[in-house]
């Protein structure tokens, strides 16, 4: 059974169909890249998998380990192992990163009938992960993402991904707003989390990211559908010829 199975998905936003019959299968251990022009529905797809309100599912289904994901609340999806790294991580003044991480991790563990972490155990985990991502300790004491640079915000997303140990990671334009050094740190953080038990969907406009995170499978999305799938050479082809050929085909 595929980890994630999307069948003929149709999604509307304010009476406009933005995903129009999308199919996608992702197996554990695989890294998939989804590329496509602006407005092709890439971000909508990531939001719908994570359960963001405001989208109308007009057809099709999303199965996660065979379970109907669309019936679950966003927090149930998180507890089941779905993680979305946001394109624009949100600032939450007044909630320290440390308190946020603990509340989130313990909520997920509770939902899975696991014991909550003890304080020393939790602190050690966070410190270890933070060190590996060059996140200074004092950043964890500040409000979530408040006053963080673009790179720091993205590293904070990867920190959460490492801490929550999800089985499906969706990275929505994780490269946007990053300079080359920040991109390297973020990419190596992501690569360290690649595992045979975990799948990743990397959404991006640019091939540049795929130099750092090598996907097994590349999909081209246009006008709400997957137009073509192939190996990583498809990304090179896209760079040479652009998205126009797929837009015409749609």
């Amino acid at each position: 059974m595929a980890l994630l199975e999307i069948r003929d998905l149709r999604v509307g936003v304010e009476d406009r169909e933005v995903i129009r019959g999308l199919d996608l299968n992702v197996n554990a251990g695989e890294v998939h890249a989804i590329m496509g022009p602006n407005g092709s529905g890439k971000s909508t797809l990531s939001h719908v998998i994570a359960g963001k309100p405001g989208y109308e599912i007009t057809g099709g289904q999303i199965l996660f380990r065979g379970e109907n994901l669309l019936r679950m609340e966003p927090n149930e999806r998180a507890a089941k192992g779905v993680f979305l790294a946001f394109q624009y991580p949100i600032e939450i003044p007044g909630v320290t990163t440390m308190n946020f991480l603990r509340a989130a991790l313990n909520a997920q563990r509770k939902a899975r009938d696991q014991q909550e972490f003890s304080t020393p155990e939790f602190l050690k985990r966070v410190r270890d992960v933070a060190d590996s991502l060059n996140i200074p300790q004092d950043m964890l004491k500040r409000g979530v993402n408040v006053g963080f640079s673009g790179g720091e915000k993205k590293r904070n997303e990867i920190l959460q991904m490492a801490l929550f140990e999800p089985s499906l990671c969706i990275l929505d334009e994780i490269d946007s707003g990053l300079d080359i050094d920040a991109l390297r740190i973020v990419a190596s953080g992501i690569n360290a989390l690649r595992s045979p038990k975990r799948a990743m969907i990397v959404i991006t406009h640019y091939r540049r990211l795929l130099d750092h995170i090598e996907p097994e499978i590349v999909h081209v999305m246009s006008k709400g559908r997957v137009m073509k799938s192939g190996g990583k050479e498809l990304a090179l082809e896209l760079e040479a010829c652009g998205y126009a050929q797929f837009e015409d085909a749609a």
Partner: peptide, 20 residues
């Protein structure tokens, strides 16, 4: 939504934000 996507129930997410 950000908090819910990280595992907090809608109620807990709202409570955390109100406390903040």
């Amino acid at each position: 939504f950000y908090l819910r996507a990280r595992g907090l129930s809608e109620k807990d997410a709202q409570m955390l934000l109100i406390k903040a």
